[in-house]
Every structure is written in structure tokens, then in C-alpha cells.
């Protein structure tokens, strides 16, 4: 199972890199989304996909799954959710102001002109 997950993480990272290197801003944002999903899945996989009872307090259960990675992933998902939302609004505003979503046309600063 871990082996399969590792391959999926690899695919996620590869497609994320491909999307981030493209020119369209929207694709880049989707790429960052995939990248964080890859990282979250990696976090779950690296800490071991153990089988056992849910990490919730109850009687007659002795073997629990490690609850920590789940807590970490939840935190990381929430953060990336917020950041992605912000990024989408930012991209929309940028598109309105600059009239383009092409990164090629967003080069340079005033001092380089």
C-alpha cells in the first residue's frame, strides 16, 4: 500500500511541476493545489499507513492508528485551502488589472524597464 501511495505522490508532484511551469496563471494555481496534495499524501504515507482502531478513546481497543499525521494533514489542508482561496482571488484581481493571465507578460519591475 505504501508503495502504491509513493507512486501516486510522485505522479502528483510531477503533474504539479508540469502545471506550475506553464504560462497560464490558472493552471499554475491548480499546480500549487496538486503540489500541496502531494505533500499531504506524502506526510500520511511516510508516517506509515498502519491498520488499527480509530485513534479515539474507547474501551477494549489496544492498537490505535497514529493520530498525529492525521492532525498534521488536517492542519496543512486547512492552511492550503486558505492560501489557495487567497491566490485565486489575487489571480482574478490581477487579471482584471493587467488584462492578462499569461505569466510571460508579467515580467520585470519598473526598474528593469
Amino acid at each position: 500500500m505504501e508503495f502504491l501511495m509513493c507512486i501516486i505522490v510522485g505522479i502528483l508532484f510531477a503533474s504539479a511541476v508540469y502545471l506550475i511551469l506553464s504560462k497560464s496563471l490558472l493552471r499554475i494555481i491548480i499546480g500549487t493545489g496538486l503540489l500541496s496534495h502531494g505533500a499531504h499524501l506524502l506526510l500520511l504515507t511516510m508516517s506509515g499507513l498502519k491498520t488499527g482502531a480509530a485513534p479515539v478513546l474507547s474501551d477494549n481497543v489496544t492498537s490505535y492508528t497514529d493520530p498525529l499525521p492525521q492532525a498534521l494533514v488536517l492542519t496543512a489542508i486547512v492552511i492550503s485551502f486558505g492560501v489557495t482561496a487567497f491566490f485565486l482571488v489575487l489571480a482574478y484581481r490581477t487579471y482584471q488589472e493587467l488584462g492578462t493571465d499569461n505569466m510571460e507578460e508579467m515580467r520585470g519591475t519598473e526598474s528593469h524597464d
Partner: peptide, 11 residues
């Protein structure tokens, strides 16, 4: 955002 994703991966 990229460096944050890498941070999660490093952790």
C-alpha cells in the same frame, strides 16, 4: 506556496 509544500514534505 511551493516552499510551504516542500516544508510539509521535509517534515
Amino acid at each position: 506556496v511551493i516552499s510551504s509544500a516542500l516544508f510539509v514534505a521535509a517534515v
